[in-house]
Structure formats: C-alpha cells, structure tokens
Amino acid sequence: MMGAEFVALSLPPILIGICVAVACALPGNFLLLRGQALIGDAISHVVLPGIVVAFLVTGLVATGPMLLGAAGAAVVAVIAIEAIRRLGRIEAGAAMGVVFTAMFAGGVLLLEQSDTSNVHLDVEHALFGNLESLIWLDATGWASLLDPVALAGMPVELPRMALALGVVAVFVWLFWRPLAMMSFDEGFAQGLGLRTGALGLALVIISAVAAVAAFDAVGSIIVIAMFICPPAAARMMTNRLGAQVAWSVGFAALSAVSGYVLAGYGPLWIGASASVSAAGMIATMSGLILAVAAVLGPHRTRNS
C-alpha cells in the first residue's frame, strides 16, 4: 500500500484533503469565536450559482472563470445578507437563510435548464466533489516527487489548493494580533482604532477564497465541516488562542487523512469491494473528533 500505487492514487488526494482541511480550519477559528460559524455554510451554498453562471457565460469548465464566478457569487451573497439585514431589520440568521437558499435554488434551476450533459457539472458534484478522482497517473513511485516531467502531470488542484492555503496562512499570520483582539473584544479593538468592519469583511473574503478553491476539488460538504468541526473541537481543548489554532490544524489534518484512508481502504478491511465517498467520510471523521472532544475535552464547558 505504500508503494508506487500509493503515490499515484492516494498521495495527491490525501495532500489535497489536508490542504483543504487546514485552509478552511484556520479562518474557521476566528469565525467561530466571532459567532459567524455559519458564514462558511452560506458561502459554500452560493458558490454553485456562481460556477453555473461562469460556465454559461464562458461555455467551458475552466478553473479561472469558475473561481471568478464563485468569488463573485460569494461577494454578492455577503452584500445581499447585509442589505436584507439592515433594510428589513431582520435577524442575521434568517437573512442568511433567505439568501443562500434562494441563490442555491437559482443555481440548481440554471443547471437543469442549461445543457451541461457533456461537461462534468452537476449538483451532486457540487455537494460532495470527487476527491478520489484526483489521481496522478504520471507517478511511478516516490522518486516521481523529484522528477520535473512527472510533477507536471500532477492534478492541478494540488498546487492551487496549496496556494490557497498559503494565502490563508499568510493572512492569519500577518493579522494575528488584530484578529485575536477583534474576536475576543470587538469594542476594545475599536477603541484602539482598529477598523473591525474592514477586518471582519477581509476575514469573510479570505474564508470565501478558501471555500471556493476547495469547492472544485472536494465539494461543499467538507468545506462546511472543516470551517466548524476542527475549530470547535480545538475550543474544547484549550483556553489560549494560539493553542486552539494549533489544535484545529492538527484535528483538520487528522480528519482528512483518517477520512480518506477509511473511505478508500476501510470497506476492503471489512470485505466489501467498493470504496465510499471520501468527502463524506472526512466530514464524518471530523464529527467524531468533535464528539470525543465535546465529551472528554478539558475545557468543554463554558466556565472551564
């Protein structure tokens, strides 16, 4: 299992899964502390219409237009939620529910109405992606990792996802102190002259970048799970922000690896022939980790 076949078939999906999980979990920590945990949920629903519109406009399933379309849809959704909340004086959760269901419904309808039968674009794909299909056929063994010719045949999702992870990590590293202050005491941060409105929006946009980059590779269900479950489990383990972020990164990577391995090899161990959905399994594993942390974590209650 650790030979050439592993490098070609399992290594790229596992690495992509880790990148996705960590890139979503990092901003997820701050969203969780700010009480915006469901932003990830909303973003990953509205990405669908963005991608469909991009496809209808350009007529091709290419990365560039799709990322643009998805990012555009995410921005439209954030603005629409804010507008409905203020214009109609409606509670944020309800405003979010109105916007993302309507946009998702619009996306599904567009998809049904347009002729996408010859391209790889459907609702199931949008929901749970296809992590297993991201294989690296040019690889012949571990040595391929150093071979430029073989590296060129790597699934494009891997470098793209690594880049997204880099952007997210740099953002968190640069704005660590302001983000920390804003998450725990918004009033104090404003008193120090911090522009929390702009920083909050930047956090949402960075989350959208992570979600959109991940969406194409793994579908929206992992994205939602990774925004919330690893940070929530990490929250049960510690009271310090630095440690919480570190725990969440560990939990995210653990869910990605264990989820993928269980999905790919687990059924074989119990004698079944086919594998199960890796995306679903990764989300399930993150949920199990959260469940364990919620029952046993040293800081699981409000006053500990």
Binding site: L32, G35, Q36, A37, L38, G40, D41, G93, L127, F128, I221, I222, I224, A225, F227, I228, C229, A232, R235, M236, A263, A274, S275, V276, S277, A279, G280, M281, I282, A283, T284, S286, G287, L290, A294, H299, R300, T301, R302, S304
Partner: peptide, 26 residues
C-alpha cells in the same frame, strides 16, 4: 452542555450528518 454557541452546533451537526449520509448513499 458545551461552550459552543448554537450557530456552531448547527453547523457541526448539519455538515457531519450530511457527510455521513453521503457515505451511506455511496
């Protein structure tokens, strides 16, 4: 019972249950 807010609880439950559902569908 835990320190999580209701929004985080909602997000965690919906994504994990849905993910597990997808596993069962496959």
């Amino acid at each position: 019972r835990t320190r999580l807010g209701e929004d985080a609880a909602i997000g965690a439950v919906l994504s994990v249950f849905f993910g597990f559902g997808i596993v069962l569908l496959t």
